[in-house]
């Protein structure tokens, strides 16, 4: 799983540099996100611009991270979600769980 990290304001941004999240790499994603939360990051943004395919295990990895950060009163946000990937969140009604933004600036501007 190719991941990059950036920090902006109080946000830790996890950029997924993969076209595909499936049962082969979703375990790595889950581990990386949980590690970031365990390090004390309470405002996590996952950037999915490159991701054009996600399966149930990928959704499960994001959900595991959401549950962990939410238990500590932190926030996990998703940004740049492609249409077909977004459709998976809609089908499972995970759009009601995750805060999903079109642009990173929508999050950053909101908190300035």
């Amino acid at each position: 799983m190719k991941l990059r990290y950036e920090t902006k304001q109080e946000y830790e941004i996890v950029i997924i540099d993969e076209e595909r999240i499936d049962a082969h790499n979703s375990g790595d994603l889950k581990e990386a996100l949980l590690h970031k939360i365990e390090q004390g990051n309470t405002h996590l943004i996952v950037q999915l611009a490159q991701v054009r395919f996600i399966d149930s295990s990928g959704l499960g990895a994001l959900l595991a991270a959401y549950k962990k950060i939410n238990a500590g009163h932190g926030r996990l946000m998703l940004v740049h979600v492609q249409a077909q990937v977004l459709a998976m969140f809609e089908l499972t009604r995970l759009t009601q769980v995750f805060d999903i933004y079109a642009e990173l600036d929508d999050i950053l501007a909101h908190h300035q």
């Binding site: 399966d55 149930s56 295990s57 959704l59 499960g60 990895a61 959900l63 595991a64 549950k67 998976m88 089908l91 499972t92 009604r93 995970l94 009601q96 769980v97």
Partner: peptide, 14 residues
């Protein structure tokens, strides 16, 4: 369970 989403079990649903 849409009200209480779980990390597993979505595959066969799809």
């Amino acid at each position: 369970d849409f009200a209480n989403p779980q990390e597993t079990g979505m595959g066969l649903f799809f």
